[in-house]
Amino acid sequence: MVQGGGEPDDNLIRSFASAMYNTIDAPVTWFREKVVEPNQKKYPWYHQQFRRVPTIDQCYSDDVVCDFEANTQFKRDRAVDSEILNILRMRFEDCMIYEKPDHEVKCKPLWEKYKDAEEAWFIKYGDLGAYGDARKAYMKQKHRMIWERRHGPLSEQTK
């Protein structure tokens, strides 16, 4: 075996250990480079994109599978929207701590963005309770649209 300087390695134990390492490592490295890496999906786990399924208004009334998929997607969307709202709230709170003396001026855009997102979240998911599902949210949206048709928009976001 040849060391970095070009002269052979006379140490028998080091030579044996290197041969054993290469015997075990070479097939594993080959398998990883030739089989695993070409077949890997290239997205990080936190950016996984699920395909969109039909919403609850596109499902037939007796289609249990479509209803289940719509509810699962609704719950996933609610979790994502809740996390976005949480991130906006944390940004505002961090701004309040960081910009302590004159935080009313510097953090006002973050506060307005958070309040708009909170209103949009409440329009879609508010008053549904812990067991709210896609059908209840759809009925809430339908009742809101009927009310707005009769009485006018409730907020700036629905104009």
Rank of each mutant, 00 (worst) to 15 (best):
M1R: 11
M1H: 10
M1N: 10
V2Q: 00
Q3H: 10
Q3Y: 07
G4Y: 15
G6N: 05
D9C: 14
D9G: 01
D10C: 06
N11C: 06
L12M: 09
S18I: 14
M20D: 06
Y21R: 15
T23S: 11
V28F: 12
T29E: 13
T29Y: 07
F31G: 07
F31K: 13
K34R: 12
K34C: 00
V35H: 05
V35W: 01
Q40W: 05
Q40L: 12
Q40P: 00
Q40F: 05
Y46N: 14
H47N: 15
H47W: 07
F50R: 09
T55Q: 12
T55N: 11
S61A: 09
D63I: 15
V65L: 14
F68N: 13
F68I: 12
E69K: 15
E69H: 10
Q73M: 05
F74V: 04
K75Q: 12
R78N: 01
A79V: 14
V80L: 08
V80W: 06
S82N: 08
S82P: 04
S82I: 04
S82W: 02
I84N: 11
N86T: 14
N86P: 00
L88N: 00
L88S: 05
R89N: 07
M90R: 11
R91G: 05
R91H: 10
F92A: 07
E93S: 04
D94M: 10
C95E: 06
C95N: 11
M96R: 15
I97D: 10
Y98D: 14
E99I: 01
K100V: 01
H103M: 10
E104T: 02
E104R: 14
V105K: 15
K106N: 13
P109M: 11
W111G: 09
E112N: 13
K113C: 10
K113F: 08
Y114S: 00
Y114E: 01
Y114I: 13
I123C: 03
G129M: 04
G129C: 03
D133A: 04
D133C: 03
A134P: 09
A134L: 03
A134H: 04
R135I: 06
R135N: 03
K136E: 04
A137H: 07
A137V: 01
M139N: 12
Q141T: 10
H143L: 11
R144F: 07
R144Q: 08
W147I: 11
E148R: 12
E148L: 05
G152W: 08
L154K: 15
E156D: 03
Q157N: 15
T158W: 03
K159M: 08
